[in-house]
């Protein structure tokens, strides 16, 4: 028991430790403020925040629909849940290809968009946000759905008999009671958005300040400027750790409330 556990610990923590040990700490500030990292840093945090908002706005209703899906045919529920969870297990590049098929200029939706309005989505910051939302949405939906299902249905009954419409019941009773799950889902989808690479590079492209997010910049810098790549990697690792630690705190406060 102990030996495999130690190996597992090393497997998980080892690469992170190595990254931190070998990071060019003396040049880190200079690298982070440099022309490669700084625009990517700003773009990444901006797009990840935007995609988290998209995830919340679209994901909470979807989670509510799924949480109320008990009366559906079982196959339909299963398919719906599988579709929601697919981006979790899909290779991100495949997600990017799928997004291209949908939203590229020749895509199912992209073509009518382009011919009708002249709108092109790839190569725009919006494309980055879409790719990130695609990747982050499952985290939010599954987390919120679980939280909504965990809310005692008697609160909704009580609210209804106190004159609250289904919408008011959801907004003022059920959703606030699911707030810890919503917070956790939002933080997880933010973290996933920040780390999104495969779908972004495939679907959105890579242009500094427009579509070149931190992971994309790290990948491209890898061969020519490893220092910059590692500096970005350090930022992403630190953000991931902070997010997960914050998440823990939020869970605790959420449960205490």
């Amino acid at each position: 028991m102990i030996a495999p556990a130690v190996v597992a610990g090393v497997l998980l923590a080892g690469p992170l430790v190595a990254l931190l040990v070998r990071a060019p700490w003396d040049r880190l500030g200079e690298l982070l403020a440099g022309p490669v990292v700084l625009p990517a840093l700003g773009l990444s945090f901006g797009t990840a925040s935007a995609s988290t908002v998209v995830c919340v706005v679209l994901g909470v209703p979807l989670a509510a629909v799924l949480a109320g899906s008990d009366g559906w045919p079982r196959l339909l529920t299963r398919v719906a849940r599988a579709v929601v969870a697919t981006p979790l297990v899909l290779p991100p590049v495949v997600g990017g290809i799928a997004l291209l098929m949908l939203l590229s200029r020749t895509g199912l939706l992209g073509q009518p968009l382009f011919t009708a309005f002249g709108v092109t989505i790839p190569f725009t910051t919006a494309a980055v946000v879409i790719a990130q939302a695609f990747a982050g949405l499952p985290f939010l939906v599954l987390s919120v759905e679980g939280a909504l299902r965990g809310v005692d249905p008697r609160f909704a009954v009580a609210a209804a008999t106190l004159g609250a419409s289904p919408w008011a019941t959801f907004m003022h009773v059920t959703l606030p009671l699911a707030a810890p799950g919503l917070a956790a889902g939002a933080v997880l989808s933010f973290a996933r958005a920040l780390g999104e690479f495969g779908a972004t590079i495939t679907f959105a492209g890579s242009l500094p300040g427009v579509t070149e997010t931190m992971p994309v910049a790290a990948y491209i810098a890898l061969t020519s400027d490893p220092g910059a790549a590692i500096a970005i990697a350090v930022v992403l690792v630190v953000v991931a750790l902070v997010v997960l630690l914050a998440l823990r705190e939020r869970w605790l406060t959420g449960l205490r409330a």
Binding site: D152, R154, F155, V157, A158, A160, T161, L162, G163, A164, S165
Partner: peptide, 14 residues
């Protein structure tokens, strides 16, 4: 329920 002049107090007061 929200449009009925009916009040309900549940066993666990909710």
């Amino acid at each position: 329920p929200e449009r009925r002049p009916v009040g309900l107090v549940l066993q666990q007061p909710a």
